[in-house]
Design a protein around this nucleic acid. Structure first.
Lengths: 156, 156
DNA sequence: TAGTTTGTTCAGAAATAACTGAACAAACTT
DNA sequence: AAGTTTGTTCAGTTATTTCTGAACAAACTA
């Protein structure tokens, strides 16, 4: 049923799909495609190779890999006798992804907490609803923490 | 330190901030602002009132509330003797938010699973890495499920 | 019946985000 | 020294998303 295709074609499709998913997650498509390529290939890929294979400008690669580096999702390598930069999936990439998501959630919770702090102690019903909202974010943070712990355990 | 302000000003700030957070979460700003307003006020708000207070067109309200309704985050009400539609926070709004996030994650996992299915049984190293990736999504799904369970428990 | 209020839809405008090309600096090669 | 390769930055274009205004239908009111 599930027609087995050439590996190259599967790779192309995977990269394309991950670009779309990245976009849906509020990440630039190109960062998602680079990430997917590194997941699929495993080995380190050269800067120029990324631009060539993805058919985008080197400026785009530069910006995209910086984003991925800043989030701790990929590592930049140098090889002796080769001036190009190489990139590889960070070994804790998935954990870093979740940490980033958790940090975002914490920021949202802080906003709600700030609102609560600014609110007169009277308005008790409003405070109650904002507390529910804050608690919602807190639960997400807890859950992401659990997922992080489980993934780190598997990696050891 | 945390200067207590007028409730109206705190409300404005909260709505504004939640619009920004919604955007960061891949939701239109207006949907976020409407959601925030309903959280803050608790009571049902009229369609026209939303447009007036947020200073946007009724077309925008129409589109935004439909998105929120489709996700199960708000409820549309009617009041006898009033032709307007009213909107209220759904009582399981936070759970629905998490369910939506979990469904998105499952979709991503399916993409990876599909890639695995299309891949020749040989390429074992690639399969290993894709499995890690799939597992990453699976862990998120588990965690979101846990968060859902905890919030549902609290509500009972 | 003619007019009003209400919510929806859709083509298009406005705002935002992503990508490119060119200019540049650093590190090399010949 | 002159030329090449490499990665970065930024102004500007392209693409995408979000919002609006106008047209419309349904349900009411005078």
């Amino acid at each position: 049923m599930d027609g087995e295709q050439g590996t190259a074609a599967v790779r192309e499709a995977f990269i394309e799909r991950m670009g779309v998913i990245a976009q849906a997650d509020g990440m630039p498509r190109m960062s998602g495609q680079i990430f997917a390529m590194l997941v699929f290939d495993g080995e380190a890929l050269a800067f120029g190779e990324l631009a060539r294979q993805l058919e985008v400008s080197r400026a785009t690669i530069s910006t995209s890999v910086r984003l991925l580096e800043d989030r701790g999702l990929i590592r930049r390598l140098n090889r002796r006798g080769d001036r190009q930069d190489y990139f590889q999936l960070a070994d804790n990439a998935y954990v870093e992804m979740l940490r980033h998501a958790r940090a975002n959630t914490a920021r949202a919770r802080d906003e709600v907490a700030g609102t609560l702090a600014d609110l007169p102690a009277t308005a008790g019903d409003i405070r109650g609803r904002l507390n529910d909202f804050k608690n919602f974010y807190a639960e997400i943070e807890t859950s992401l923490g659990d997922a992080i712990a489980r993934i780190e355990k598997n990696r050891t």
